[in-house]
Design a protein around this nucleic acid. Structure first.
Length: 484
DNA sequence: TTTTGAGTTGTTCGA
DNA sequence: GTCGAACAACTCAAA
């Protein structure tokens, strides 16, 4: 039987891979697994060294997994349609299968690939795989996409209960007679990128599965069972940390859901499992929001809030990026981002609120910075999160909800475990002052081995004053310039 | 068609 | 220290 090309993109796994399983089924195992390095994503203005490095490591792992089955990963670099056409010609393939991706760039790319392959007489078939429900599967009674999370989630959970979970079977792959030429998986430097000091999590399908198992293990504290309260504490390892795997598909959302659903059978784990499923629903929600409203990638979802007059002070922005704002929770988080290519979700909200509402910098500057450094950086989720924080998005937080970085710290990191981990200069500051070290008298600073202004910055802005200015900024953008 | 209820994650102020 | 109100309407979703 003529082989079928499986075009890997954000589904770098063998288990529960919808398109791969279909390709194996339809070709009698004659699958040509392909990954195409796309310079538009890797090297352009969207380049992200940590994410590229994680991708390359994941590709290495995928290739090894394929080789264990007598197959291998073919790597090409270039314009996807051209590479697919040339691979199809070289391998006499009957067609190309892939799993759908919903970002505006991917929709354009895949539309062009589909048209080009079909006009060359090849089969081109795409599958739902990256989300539990896509496009208009979760829709209002009027058939419109939801714009508010809670009713969306209610309907999503109802649909899941009705339809249940179907995982794709493991693909049985047969070795091909002829393998087209493949590039070696490049090193990061070959792409003109450098990782710097970022330490990445383990990549690949096996690492993803073992992290999911560890997270769901009932003997583990807090684990999935304790997720609901623990996920809010950045100093505690209370989240799944699976986001990089979900980003590249070394784990599927169905695998996560199957684990969560089996765990929630136990009464004690139900609240945690439900809360965690809620996060997977957010992932589908934002993918769907961006799919239906691609303008949100460039500007405010609520278009009238494009009128916000950001101050965009580059010095303040740099201080935020480098973690020297004088607000310990913000600075710890920004340093975690640099060191790990990842940031705790509570901290993401705090730094996003701080950049927009305290520094009055355009949320898109922060969005871009996150996309450059986050291993899990996903256009839809990242955009949704930033627009939520800025109050410009679907279902955004009320504009007057402005986080106070010090009280957020006291509430969610009371002993400063998180802050001390990333800001060693504050190691000896007493808990009482850990989120506002500048309030220590000089004698206390000396006792704590830190001099504010020398070893750690004094606050670069005054939260109370900036809060008032932010409220005024939003009031003007909403067309209510006076407070009278 | 109209009405009604509701909306991830807060903060500040003054009694 | 604690507690309730104010912050602001507005739009979405469903009955």
């Amino acid at each position: 039987m003529a082989p079928i090309i499986h075009w890997f993109r954000r589904d770098l796994r063998l288990a529960d891979n919808t398109a791969l399983a279909a390709a194996a089924r339809d070709s009698g195992g004659a699958v040509l697994p392909v990954f195409i390095l796309d310079d538009a994503l890797l090297c352009g203005r969207h380049a992200s060294p940590p994410r590229a490095a994680f991708l390359l490591a994941s590709l290495g792992s995928l290739d090894a997994d394929l080789r264990a089955l007598g197959s291998r990963l073919l790597v090409r670099r270039g314009e996807p349609l051209r590479e697919l056409l040339s691979l199809a010609r070289e391998s006499q393939a009957q067609g190309v299968y892939w799993n759908r991706d919903y970002t505006p760039y991917a929709v354009r790319r895949d539309g062009a690939a589909e048209a080009g392959l079909r006009s060359a007489g090849l089969r081109a078939q795409s599958f739902k795989d990256a989300v539990a429900f896509e496009m208009l599967e979760v829709a209002t009674q009027q058939g419109r996409p939801y714009a508010i999370y809670t009713p969306y989630a209610r309907r999503w959970r109802q649909l899941l209960a009705e339809r249940g979970l179907m995982l794709a079977p493991a693909p049985s792959l047969a070795p091909l007679e002829r393998w087209p030429a493949s590039l070696p998986i490049p090193a990061l430097e070959d792409l003109g990128l450098a990782l710097g000091a970022t330490a990445l999590p383990p990549a690949g399908e096996a690492a993803a599965i073992s992290r999911l198992r560890a997270f769901a293990d009932p003997r583990r504290e807090p684990g999935m069972a304790g997720y609901a309260p623990a996920r809010d504490l950045p100093g505690v390892d209370g989240t799944s940390r699976l986001s990089p795997h979900l980003r590249l598909g070394s784990l599927s959302p169905r695998q996560c859901l199957a684990t969560a659903l089996s765990l929630r059978e136990a009464e004690a784990a139900r609240a945690g499992a439900d809360a965690w499923v809620g996060e997977l629903i957010w992932r589908d929600f934002y993918a769907q929001v961006l799919f239906h409203h691609p303008h949100a990638l460039r500007g405010a979802f609520r278009r009238e809030l494009d009128a916000l007059a950001w101050e965009n002070d580059e010095g303040l922005f740099r201080a935020w990026q480098e973690g020297r704002t004088g607000y310990p929770l913000v600075d710890a988080a920004m340093r975690q981002l640099r060191q790990e290519g990842w940031m705790h979700n509570r901290a993401r909200m705090v730094v996003a609120s701080f950049l927009t509402k305290d520094l009055l910098v355009d949320w898109r500057w922060g969005e871009r910075h996150f996309m450059r450094l986050l291993v899990d950086g996903d256009p839809a989720a990242n955009n949704g999160g930033w627009q939520w924080a800025a109050g410009t998005g679907t279902d955004a937080q009320p504009y007057f909800r402005i986080f106070n970085p010090a009280s957020q710290g006291q509430r969610f990191d009371p002993q400063g475990a998180y802050v001390r981990r990333y800001l060693p200069e504050l190691a000896n500051v007493p808990d009482r002052h850990i989120h506002a070290p500048h309030l220590m008298a000089l004698a206390e600073q000396l006792r704590a081995d830190v001099q504010v202004g020398r070893d750690y910055p004094a606050p670069i802005v005054d939260h109370g004053a900036q809060r008032v200015r932010a409220l005024a900024l939003y009031r003007v953008a909403r067309g209510r310039p006076s407070n009278l």
